[in-house]
Amino acid sequence: MKPAPLDHVRATGLDHAIETLVAAGEDAKILAGGQSLVPLLAMRLAQPTTLVDLGGLRELDYIRDDGDTLEIGAMTRSRTVETSPVVAGAVPLLPAALRYVGHVTIRNRGTIGGSAAHADPAAEVPSVLRALDAELIASGPRGPRTIAARDFFDSFLLTTLEPDEILTAIRIPRQPSGSVVAVEEFARRHGDFALVAVLGAAHIDSSGRIAEVRISIAGAAPTPVRADAAERLLVGRTPTPELVRAAAAAASDATDPGSDIHAPADYRRTLATVLTRRCLTRLVADTERTEAA
């Protein structure tokens, strides 16, 4: 349980990090908070020759509210994002989901960019980015580029980042004011990876109709799943228990879970149905409560 020998370069700036990454070749890995990578090193599931450590890049540690968009630097710690009033005001789904990421101790060190780039389909951050149509900004020797979340997550632990690119920031469109959010997750123990998690956000107008709804599912496919068909069923309609059940079934149909030692695929599909139903029920109830207040 010790990492294999490796070289370590503490980047002094983004350009230095990119240069080092290019020079080290494809066996280099980027080290952010290390909460996913260091365990992989310890188990020798990853054996990079060089770690390019972004830990000293303060310029990637920021939260900026641009009005329509919230931009978060890739090296911002998860706990900082979770506890930021700016984030809570602009994109409340993100802190609601971050509470399920490991434990406080993990979130103190783990970064938002690291979680996105690690692309674990059972993780919450990728699902938030998918639900809210975030954009991911990467930099490489060919300059910066912007990647939509739907194009970013490629497969299990794989993104469409090039080997010489570094994720530098995440841009999330502001949720409409009056949005309600709900995260329903089933895990064996608090802080464990979700077997399945359903993340939802909705805006219900004054006439009680669903003006906007976003649903994404973690742990039920090789990438986070956006439940587009379920969203289409719901938009413009007044929620009823029957409608919620139909949407939950549609959400589950969008999943493509695998079987592993933790749960068979059918079980995960059932969880997707049940958790989507609970998530939507909570969104509706929270709206009613907000209006009554």
Binding site: L31, G34, V38, N108, R109
Partner: peptide, 17 residues
């Protein structure tokens, strides 16, 4: 680590510089 908890097994010594 700087007043916040950290898993010292999931942190490299060089990260704690």
């Amino acid at each position: 680590l700087d007043g916040r908890t950290a898993r010292s097994c999931c942190t490299l010594a060089v990260q704690a510089e």
